[in-house]
Design a protein around this nucleic acid. Structure first.
Lengths: 332, 332
DNA sequence: AAACGGGCTGCAATCGGTTGCAAAGTCGCG
DNA sequence: CGCGACTTTGCAACCGATTGCAGCCCGTTT
């Protein structure tokens, strides 16, 4: 049923090489030959089999798009941008959903079987073991939204989570909150830890501020809501830095339920500036993470890596900025 | 770098066929041989190249997962379920993001180049031309969340949108709303049209009810909000059936902004029952679409189609049910 | 002891393309 | 008209696997 190189060659009365060459640019083909072949090809509706050619060229143009964040709505934006970007580059995303049971080795295996040219890890909650495993398998890896480290072993594109923590702290301090808290994502997520570290550091630099922290079970609405409900039961802080917008929104809902006025009685600042954060019934003050830029840069880096897979690992960090909306009280 | 069949064969001192056979089940291999090969394979870290084998077997286990709904948060759930389901079946999702400029032919081309075994269309807003194009290219297609037709030319799994429209109408009528409206998604989306048709039919069956309708530019928060803002300017209806939860949430935000009490002054009913619909600060009355079942069934159908691609096209419809929450006034 | 039969194994062709190499074709120029 | 240089073309090997077929080995049966 599918029409192959040979069919086209036969129909055009030329050799298979000739056909192959008219479809790979940079090859020398006379205009006459090209016309003949193209005519035959279009009559037959031929399109080259990318997988077969990958056998000899060694490139599949397949990129593993790996994530474990399928519950945070911001990742829909992220997948949208990644897939569009990849498509524009002529690359194809092979989507991999890492559930809790998935082991690094299993996914490496799978990506190797499909000979992906590279792997984009899109996650802020992935244990470093995954990136390591891919790298050790010899795959070019870009970890987007990954943890910054001063000696990265894998290419990272993202933000400085520690600095974001500090930034949130400064924002709360400037507003004279005296007792503040950090409501993080999963305790074992690197982004969650780093944001805490920066936040705590900056708070403690200023003496006399009450500080506490706790973690939600996941970066999700439900987890944020549940954790805030727990906090509200016993002497909550005046303002919280939530490790992600979706947690903030959950927390917000818990606060409203409890009849608390936000920002009057409880202040909240999130992180991400997801689309929903600016919905008028949410109107969340938050720290914006420049998603588009991070993704664009990740893809550029991936392209470079495909050229030269031995490229020295680098960390690309983008600065974040506070978006003032309605969940923190105004500056004094 | 990558280790191949030949390497393993050499190391084990056997023929390549032997190695191949130990890795394909159902082939006859003696236990002794199997041990030898497996030893060599694991020492070398061999894993078979799925793409190379696809050349001779004709199956890639690649499934095109095609959608154009990257702005409706419910689709994150949908992608999550699809990718997990596919992975459990040993299939790999090749994600395709259909943007507005994408033409059916282009995407067919691409999917053919990568020899996908089948295509899952996950979209409620896709022009029928796409499904048709895939089908004509000889690809097994399942259109999930697609339009039901009594003479389907392509396998459909979804809901009866017309019936959902009627259901919404009955819900509003039972509450004695006298002037109702339909706030649909994109005017050219089939789901949007069908929901309107059912809704209007049922409303008009009951005389004396004021009816109006309009369409939002997209299934998105912003579009829903903008359209509701427009409606509120000039003599709005008492209650609206919104073609999708995300529209309802946008509409809700517009209503709250305008200082309207929901459901006191304005009633809203959505469709989907996305996760967010039950967030306490939204608490949307809506029609639940059984997403998990639709996806499970789509995958089962796809598996069946891979066995027998000539299978006669069928439509699988799942019934929806109303989820009572807080955006419609109580029954009299 | 010879014939039979079934289970394993290896050979070699094949899947759809790519590519180095050498032969063939084209062209200008003396 | 002949020669050299350059372009175009086809041959054939190869990428990493699968598979029909024929032959081998080995245990049974008579």
């Amino acid at each position: 049923m599918p029409v192959t190189l040979k069919d086209v060659a036969q129909r055009a009365g030329v050799s298979r090489s000739a056909v192959s060459r008219t479809f790979t640019d940079g090859a020398s083909v006379s205009p006459k030959m090209r016309r003949k072949v193209e005519k035959a090809a279009s009559e037959l509706g031929y399109s080259p089999n990318a997988l077969a050619s990958s056998l000899t060229t060694g490139r599949t143009k397949l990129i593993g798009l790996v994530s474990n964040n399928f519950h945070n709505p911001v990742f829909l934006e992220i997948f949208d941008l990644f897939t569009q970007g990849l498509q524009e580059l002529g690359l194809r995303p092979l989507l991999v959903n890492l559930t809790d049971e998935t082991e690094p080795d299993g996914s490496v295996q799978m990506l190797k079987q499909y000979s992906v040219d590279g792997v984009v890890l899109a996650s802020s909650t992935l244990p470093p073991a995954f990136a390591q495993a891919y790298r050790e398998a010899g795959l070019p890896v870009v970890h987007s939204f990954g943890r910054y480290s001063s000696a990265p072993t894998v290419h990272i594109v993202g933000i400085d989570n520690v600095e974001c923590g500090r930034m949130a702290a400064r924002e709360l301090l400037a507003r004279r909150y005296r007792r503040v808290g950090y409501l993080g994502g999963p305790a074992d997520s690197t982004s969650s830890q780093d944001r805490l570290a920066g936040f705590q550091e900056e708070i403690e630099k200023n003496g006399g501020i009450g500080f506490s922290h706790s973690f939600a079970g996941a970066y999700s609405f439900d987890a944020g809501r549940a954790e805030m409900q727990r906090l509200l039961k016993a002497d909550p802080a005046e303002a919280y830095f939530c490790g992600d917008d979706v947690l903030s929104i959950g927390a917000l809902s818990a606060a409203e339920d409890a009849g608390l006025d936000v920002p009057g009685e409880l202040g909240l600042i999130g992180l991400n500036d997801m689309e929903m954060a600016r919905w008028e019934n949410i109107n969340l003050t938050t720290i914006r993470q420049p998603i588009r830029q991070i993704i664009r840069s990740s893809l550029e880096l991936m392209v470079a890596l495909l050229e030269d897979s031995e490229r020295y690992p680098e960390a690309r960090l983008f600065s974040c900025s506070v978006v003032q909306r309605g969940t923190l009280r105004p500056l004094p």
